[in-house]
Nucleic acid binder design. Structure first.
Length: 449
RNA sequence: GACCCUAUGGUCUAGCGGUUAGGACACCUCCCUUUCACGGAGGUAGCCCGGGUUCGAUUCCCGGUAGGGUCGCCA
């Protein structure tokens, strides 16, 4: 029997990082087993759903590279789909639910109550076989002991989540339900529903949740909760995917950086961890830096230009070779594209902000004459290229009997406004003699003595 | 309140009836170096607590504690 798994998000306007990981694990399992990955939109809450909200989910999954074998092609609920188990929007499947509810009603497995339809839930504990957690014996809570039955159709006629989720899984032939552990307790209801419909329930695999760094529940507003922040902050999808794989699943063998293909090969349900994981943004950034460093220059340029544009730096105003040369000096130096405006912004403006304290330190009475000398040497040198500039700077330092760093720091500060950045000699060459001298002059003028 | 899940350094994790408890991120020190990053060499830091079982428990069992989840005419 071929594996059929699904990701069934509710369009709420954003894609939660935990939801993204659930989608990823489902996708990985489908790809590992040669099964099908199905995307189903649970848009039962009509008031809250919108085309845009669905679009966010589709975009998020596409960005991560999680392609679905069956599901919607557009965000339009009535639009085109692929796969033969459609429609893939719950709002389009009302007839199925009505039929199923009528059947339950006629067999006395459900009944009407105050305008709603309630399911006659079993009164005993339910055994939940789970591929990750093991066999769970779910007893009734005190409230459930009072009234175990639960609403499956609201008094306004809208079916509720538990019902539609089960019916869709049933109708779509879902074999494995891989979902967040927050659904574990509710699975008792789902199993009872499957039994009422006379079919065996799918296999369940409840995966641990992703918590905030402090261990609290990650909700909408928490940093890192929404997938769109990763897109906007300039993360690489392969880094995010790689990091997500490592939360709640372990490849063993002390592996960290792995290609998706490699994970697909190794991924399986038994290696999924049972405990929740805290989201560690710092480690994600490290991983992102690892991937960023390996990026081919063209891809780096494209993404870098985009990141700079987002920060209001229009690189189109500059000659292409200049932009490329400038960005080349940043390759392998930043972990995130969002660092780029601060890191490389000095290439694209002449308004360098000079921190007064840093200025006072690098251009103190003792050092200022040395920098003036260096400025003169830069003016004189025949070739204004990195190698020559390095030689000139080192000669000047030697003449003063100081280390190169003594001149490097003020030169960097004057030309970039930063204490750290790309290779000084290379950035000087790219900036060109005229601008370098102007920036040195400005720094020299703005310090006393 | 009841029910369910979980528990290895700060974080992600490997391991397991007998190990010097391994790796990664982060942090600290040093080296390299024009800064930073990278790279290299070191370092600090861990089996939640209490009972059992056992010759021996981080590992198995029970209890506690802590964290998370669920008990909705939300999904």
């Amino acid at each position: 029997m071929t594996v059929r798994v699904r990701f069934a998000p509710s369009p709420t306007g954003y894609l939660h990082i935990g939801g993204a990981r659930t989608a990823l694990f489902n996708w990985l399992y489908a790809r590992h087993t040669g099964g099908k990955f199905i995307l189903r939109i649970e848009d039962t809450d009509a008031a809250r759903n919108s085309l845009e909200a669905v679009e966010v989910i589709l975009q998020g999954l596409r960005w991560l590279g999680l392609d679905w074998d069956e599901g919607p092609l557009t965000a339009d609920a009535a639009g085109p789909c692929k796969g033969s188990s459609g429609p893939y929007f719950q709002s389009q499947r009302k007839a199925n639910y009505e039929q199923r509810v009528a059947a339950l009603l006629s067999r006395g497995l459900a009944y009407e109550h105050e305008g709603a339809v309630k399911f006659r839930m079993q009164r005993e504990a339910v055994i939940i076989p789970d591929l990750v957690v093991g066999e769970v014996r779910r007893e009734l809570t005190d409230r459930e002991a009072e009234d175990p039955d639960f609403v499956i159709v609201r008094s306004d006629g809208q079916p509720v989540f538990h019902l539609v989720n089960v019916i869709d899984d049933l109708d779509m032939g879902i074999t494995h339900v891989i979902r967040g552990e927050d659904h574990l307790s509710n699975t008792a209801k789902h199993i009872a529903l499957f039994r009422a419909f006379g079919v065996p329930p799918p296999k369940y695999a409840h995966i641990p949740l992703i918590l905030n760094g402090d261990g609290s529940k990650m909700s909408k507003r928490d940093t890192g909760a929404s997938m769109t922040t990763y897109v906007e902050e300039g993360f690489l999808p392969e880094a995010v995917v790689n990091y997500l794989c490592l939360l709640g699943w372990s490849p063993k063998e002390n592996r960290e950086k792995m290609s998706v293909a490699e994970v697909v090969e190794r991924f399986d349900l038994p290696q999924i961890l049972r405990h929740n994981a805290r989201f560690d943004m710092t480690k994600l950034q490290w991983l992102n830096g690892e991937y960023l460093r390996e990026l081919p220059p063209e891809k780096f340029h494209a993404a870098a230009v985009h990141a700079l544009a987002r920060a209001g730096i229009d690189t189109n105003k500059w000659p292409l070779p200049y932009v490329k040369a400038a960005l080349d000096t940043c390759l392998g130096k930043v972990k995130l594209f969002s660092e780029l405006p601060a890191y490389a912004g000095f290439y694209f403006t002449d308004e360098i902000k000079l921190d007064a304290a840093a200025l006072a330190k690098d251009f103190d009475a003792e050092n200022k004459p040395r920098v003036e000398k260096l400025r003169g040497a830069f003016q004189q040198t025949a070739n204004f290229d990195a190698a020559s500039l390095e030689a000139v700077l080192k000669e000047t330092a030697k003449a003063f009997g100081v280390k190169a760093g003594v001149l490097v720091h003020p030169a960097r500060l004057a030309c970039t406004g930063n204490a750290a950045g790309p290779s000084l000699y290379h950035l000087l060459e790219i900036l060109g003699r005229e601008r370098v001298l102007a920036r040195l002059d400005r720094a020299l003028r703005s310090t006393p003595g």
